[in-house]
Design a protein around this nucleic acid. Sequence first.
DNA 1: CGATTTTTGGCAAACGTTTGCTATAAATCG
DNA 2: CGATTTATAGCAAACGTTTGCCAAAAATCG
Lengths: 356, 356
Amino acid sequence: MNKNNDVIGEEPSGALMADVAKLAGVAISTVSRALANPGRVNEKTRTKINAAARQLGYTPNAMARGLRVGKSNIIMIILPGSLYYGVSQIIPQVLQSINKSLIQGGYNLMIANLDRDEISERHILDLAFGGSVRGAIILSSKLPEVDGRSLAGSGLPIVSMLLDMSDAGLQSVVTNDREAVRDVTAELIRLGHRRFFYLAGPEGNYHDVERYAGVLEALAAAGLSEALVRRSGGELGYQRGFDIGVRAAEDFAQLTEKPTAVIATSDDMAISFVSCIQRSGLRIPEDLSVVSFDGSPVCEFSSPPLSTIEQPVEEMGRAAVDLLLDAIDQRQKAAEIRTVIRSRLILRESVAAPKR
Amino acid sequence: MNKNNDVIGEEPSGALMADVAKLAGVAISTVSRALANPGRVNEKTRTKINAAARQLGYTPNAMARGLRVGKSNIIMIILPGSLYYGVSQIIPQVLQSINKSLIQGGYNLMIANLDRDEISERHILDLAFGGSVRGAIILSSKLPEVDGRSLAGSGLPIVSMLLDMSDAGLQSVVTNDREAVRDVTAELIRLGHRRFFYLAGPEGNYHDVERYAGVLEALAAAGLSEALVRRSGGELGYQRGFDIGVRAAEDFAQLTEKPTAVIATSDDMAISFVSCIQRSGLRIPEDLSVVSFDGSPVCEFSSPPLSTIEQPVEEMGRAAVDLLLDAIDQRQKAAEIRTVIRSRLILRESVAAPKR
DNA sequence: CGATTTTTGGCAAACGTTTGCTATAAATCG
DNA sequence: CGATTTATAGCAAACGTTTGCCAAAAATCG
């Protein structure tokens, strides 16, 4: 059975189910059942088989099984092609959390990057249609689609995470951005702030729309005018968080009536903005309160420690995996197409009441 | 052929090679050859086959192929189980770079986390021995090994990255840490610094040993005593970079003769250390020069901008993949078991000549 | 133009599992 | 104790490719 007929001391790998069966003195099918479906075989035979398997260091061949049962145990995560490297640890956290949950469910995690080019789209579609993967978690706003084949039409269970793609009919796990921003803005108002500076992400981006809406809602609720908030950023993508902050600091310097509170849509923006502002002599939070988005760990150790809205990434990852596995197992207990996880505001020294 | 005999409007997926063959009016084997080995089949038949394949949206089944040829096209990356979340973007950068290179070579990337528990070890070994993966890139210092099976003995090509595991016989892609630290220390000495504060990573850790050795080499070269350098940290793992920095700031406060230059072994340490130090009234770089390790993007935007030693992660990823694919294809052109990539010192405002 | 080589395409046997069906042995029942 | 059910194990056919081998057709040669 074992094809180690060439060199004597060949690789110790490669024991087959047939080898186990022979050693245990049973049929192949019995081995298969003993391993996968223990109730179906007598205890005595089973222990004999298990012993034989262990002795040979037998590991079932995943591809053979996959081919036979017509399913793979691999989940693919689709990441936006050009990740940006700031201070946020969201991507590694997501990966870690998802992978952990998947492994508990008996699945493996494969990475796919979705760039703007056709190559990467085709690659992902090959994975989907080639039976390599069993489901997908997508962190990108675009669904791959090229010459006839589309990810949506692959029949593959898909869950979107971070981005709300429920419009496209995808189960989505997102945070309550709007509400979170509304609350933090309300808190700033309560502290006495009346002039705001909003550092926007990419114009029209889902997150940005939601977050800005939160600001406006809080103003409206307090009976304040929308004119009290100035926007900066928006021309650059999230790609350039630090740059947005730097440019925002320049914008800020131009303003005649200085805002007293800054709401930034990423920690990156906040960090570079604060750095520039401090260099120009202003102090945080005495002259300016700052709050931002992402919950990056470093915020705790900035000067001053930055208030930030943390997205509970671990929890989101777990939720996404749960939804995906439900869909795979047809449990379809998920009634809601959108799963909203609450963000957590971490208030630190960067927020205070405005001077005088 | 196609088993869509249940519902009319079933999933459009699932065209088989047999379907393509029938539509093109040729045998299955001809289709296979036309797709994989175009030279072997007449151009006219081939275009006919390609047309049929496209029309049906045919995608070859990866598991069937894998089973038949006895190889998978998946590479596994083994990450240390508990990633720490600081400011470093090394892990996502590594993933991105490796994945990109792999895809160009026709491979896919699977993630595996190696914790200290037996479960995760067994999981990785199952992947290795179950034929799921074709090779591994490992970023962890420990090779999984449990009841008889060991990753080293799997016959799988393995390349270590970041950590030097050439002792264990593994191809390793590392940076020239010692040299880099030696150079930066020499530069500090040249600027006039004579008392140093060294923020250590985990005691005995490969990186730490190398880096500290670099400091000592520079001192020796300048004819200075080793007594000029104070160590802090070392008790905590890399896990806690920020905490090490905080504690180091406390240690620093105790010192009667203050060092004028700090060498930190991670940006995390440097950032929290600097934050604490500044709060205590000292100024960087006037009172204290700081240089650290990792090349985290945020260092450029800290106050003051931090000098840091950048590991060229992209290049390392490419190198690791090249080595791995060489090993897989038996090209074994790699004579050296250790591939050293040069780090890059990024000098910023956090380093200056000492006062007076 | 027959003989030989080259090109092209088809048949069928793998690859290592799982699983429906069947056959035997053991257990239960009337 | 014979008849019926239930537990257990084996046979063999899948799963969707690739590929060694062979046959027919086409091309080349003497």
